[in-house]
Amino acid sequence: MATLEVAGLEKSFGGVRAVQGISFSVRPGEMLALIGPNGAGKSTCFNMLNGQLRPDAGSVRLLGREITGMAPRTIWRLGVGRTFQITATFGSMTVLENVQMALLSHHRRLGGLWRPVARMDAAPARALLERLGMAEQAARPCGILAYGDLKRVELAIALANQPKLLLMDEPTAGMAPQERVSLMALTAQIARESGIAVLFTEHDMDVVFGHADRILVLDRGRLIAEGAPAAVRADPKVREVYLGSGAVTGAH
């Protein structure tokens, strides 16, 4: 069964039809890239999947369960991790504490008034950071971390509730080219090992064509192409959308 099934998703802002009847699905362990020029509707689409926006029409199903219109925090509890285009972490907490928060929330232990956080879920949080190569940074405050490291912390947070689906909005934006490749390789590895379905948007075509198993191309709110990287690259409609930017042909 597909992890995520999206059918006939629609959203308009005033007179602008930002997303028009999009359907697709993501399988466990699959890396699915959502690409398209600026304003194609990628972010709108994303925000409807995790509950930040309510779609005008269409349905979103997670493991066969209807999650359309649910609050982001409810959707998270059902197993959807999320990273943001502009990182969002808790700046007044250390890297370790950030991950602990996600774990504590997952275990529904945030109401505690007595036991200090320092002694709760520290070991599993450390293990997650270890997995992402962030163990050495564990004690540093997120507020002073380099941007690339913050992206990794976000990934660690997103993985804390053992998600079935990861939604990553431009996971490598603002990172150095070297870091990009290693982060995406790591993400792909984790996804395959744990059978997590990953849906990501990305502007960097190296990242997209290097790591996606499948690609969806959006243009002006419509899905114009879908398929394996090679097929998408050869698709004349995709070339037309990206014409002049050279991004698709210049990828390799």
Binding site: P72, R73, W76, R77, F90, L110
Partner: peptide, 26 residues
Amino acid sequence: RVVHAPFGYALRAQRDSALRAEAIGI
């Protein structure tokens, strides 16, 4: 003590980043 406990951390979490707090179920 509460500030050092999970509840106090959750308070700070929603202050630091409402977006992230919501995204981890707070």
